[in-house]
């Protein structure tokens, strides 16, 4: 039960794609910072299908992406959280792996 913490853009760093390779069934992914940008991309949306995803709200709002991501967010496997939620998640999962 790992929480994979991705902080970098999937377009400039392979952190997200590597993490997907080693993603376990009980794992989840937290997209923070530029990592959330990939949700705009249909190809990435497809690759992330079936994964448990969390999204840091402040990073989505700071980038003006709330409206753009509305469709992705309606999908049931993405949960928007704040830093308090991040803290709680870090304790619910057995560890946080920052890529």
């Amino acid at each position: 039960m790992n929480l994979h913490h991705i902080q970098t853009s999937a377009y400039t760093d392979n952190a997200l794609s590597l993490c997907l390779r080693y993603y376990g069934v009980d794992d989840a992914i937290l997209l923070a910072g530029d990592a959330i940008n990939c949700l705009l991309d249909v190809n990435w949306q497809t690759q992330l299908q079936g994964k448990t995803l969390y999204l840091l709200e402040s990073d989505m709002l700071s980038r003006g992406l709330k409206t753009k991501l509305e469709n992705s967010l309606n999908s049931s496997h993405i949960t928007v959280i704040d830093y308090a939620g991040f803290v709680s998640l870090s304790l619910q999962f057995s560890k946080v792996i920052t890529w």
């Binding site: 923070a32 530029d34 402040s58 704040d82 308090a84 991040f86 709680s88």
Partner: peptide, 29 residues
């Protein structure tokens, strides 16, 4: 009990800002 590791610079990197926000939220809880 948390230990926090910061690998990003004080300016121009998201990592340190994010670590700081995490610390604030953890302490608030």
């Amino acid at each position: 009990q948390f230990i926090i590791q910061v690998n990003g610079s004080v300016y121009g990197s998201f990592a340190s800002v994010s670590a700081f926000h995490f610390c604030q939220a953890a302490l608030a809880q």
